[in-house]
Write a protein that binds this DNA or RNA. Structure first.
Lengths: 247, 247
DNA sequence: CGCGCTGTTGAAACTTGTCAAAGTTTGTGG
DNA sequence: CCACAAACTTTGACAAGTTTCAACAGCGCG
């Protein structure tokens, strides 16, 4: 192992934790920072952590002291209630942040579970606040990220509050498609990382209802489904369905 | 009218916008600030604004440049969709903040409507970010407030995703009760500021279903209802109902 | 004082959940 | 590498919960 100070000269640098050479710069926290600011952010984002499928990044009730950026992989967050019921509150993918819910009470209020082998960057929250006070752009971007989370949640509330089963699933698929697109993947073809039950929990439906809706979409020629593999055939059709339009 | 600079010498000061003599200090943004910091916050919180019942504080699509603290009164936020449906995303009372959703895109994403005559304080957002960089405590508290909003939204998602009609209404009443209590009002007796339809929209139910659930609670001796006046007779009973317990 | 908005209640229709059975895929251990 | 178990998915039939439609009552604002 070379001494730390020389690492930068080695190709190994490419695997070092560093926002400055992360290709998620434009999706993640560093958005809009200049080189100097990026260097400061690098210092604060400590070691990457790897999680295998099924492992928890954090659990409800654990003390909060950092937020996490997903470097690669796929997560779900969920809340369990005493009576045994649980609700998936979100699915998070590459470049998205986890743990914002913990800021308010300094305790995590949900569980974050990797749905595939994943890699995350840890961002100690106190440090982030410190750096935010120095770097205006970072502060503002962080506020935007938190606000975006609120807007996203309002979207889910609308989905749960006023859509029926098939509309919810259509909205869900379109949302995934859009997020995959933003990450350079195909808008029309992807693998679901979650089970029908997890989708159902997120959408406020039972797994059987989700399965039936998938079958229905298939019959209607909107998509093809084979287990976890989905291909969207008719985006417009899904959009129409989602917005409740009836011909 | 005395010149502005002398206002502070007059009893009129009592009605001047000032966090430092606002009795919501402990609920609102100033929480935890010392006198010096409070004075700085005072400078930034510009004129109070009064709204009559039914008036909009802001509308979806309008440019965002400030957040608002409710000095007195009661609000709802809602989102309208093209197809005519709408969803109430929240009810806000004294000491709570409005407008956080607008930070992400610099455009308001919902409507905020006064449900009774109300008074609000305007907090220009750029100034708030500026002051946040100076006052550590304010920064942290603001982050907590945003995070609390996210946690609250998760609560609503759980309500919409896994509770049935009566459970939702029970949760709603208990939540109101708790918030009134925190503001020094009776935990057991209050007037609803919103219609059955608005409650229904918030809870993902039709107004008839809400009305029936109220009647049911009344029959079961959990509450008394007369139009908008509600008195909770059996808090424990409501809690049991909410958590799905069946005897 | 009456008109309109809000709330209540009933019956029927519809959507989703529940229960059950069978098919499929995945992972593990022999 | 196969066999078997466990987990996940699909589908059907029926039950339960919620919405829809409709009629009517009550309150409150002008």
């Amino acid at each position: 192992m070379p001494p730390r100070s020389t690492i930068a000269k080695f190709p190994l640098e490419l695997v070092k934790t560093a926002c400055s050479n992360c290709n998620l710069r434009e999706l993640c926290l560093p958005l809009g920072l200049n080189d100097h600011e990026l260097a400061k952010l690098d210092e604060l984002v400590s070691a990457r952590k790897r999680l295998k499928r099924g492992e928890h990044l954090y659990r409800s009730g654990q003390p909060f002291d950092a937020i996490y950026a997903i470097r690669s992989g796929f997560f779900k967050t969920d809340v369990l209630v005493e009576d045994g019921r649980d609700q998936v509150t979100g699915f998070q993918m590459t470049g998205e942040l986890l743990g914002l819910d913990g800021i308010s009470s300094e305790v995590h209020t949900c569980n974050a579970v990797a749905l595939e082998d994943s890699e995350i960057c840890t961002i100690p929250f106190t440090h982030l606040e410190g750096l935010s006070r120095e770097i205006h752009t970072l502060q503002h971007h962080f506020h935007k990220v938190m606000s975006r989370e609120i807007v996203r949640d309002h979207g889910v509330m609308m989905l749960l509050g006023m859509m029926r089963a098939e509309e919810r699933l259509a909205a869900f698929l379109l949302n995934l498609s859009q997020r995959f697109t933003a990450r350079g993947y195909s808008p029309a073809e992807f693998n679901l990382r979650m089970t029908r039950e997890e989708i159902g929990s997120y959408l406020g439906l039972k797994l059987e209802t989700v399965s039936r809706a998938f079958s229905r979409f298939h019959e209607d020629g909107l998509i093809t489904v084979q287990q976890k593999h989905v291909r969207i055939l008719d985006t417009q059709g899904l959009k129409k369905l989602m917005t409740h339009e009836r011909e």
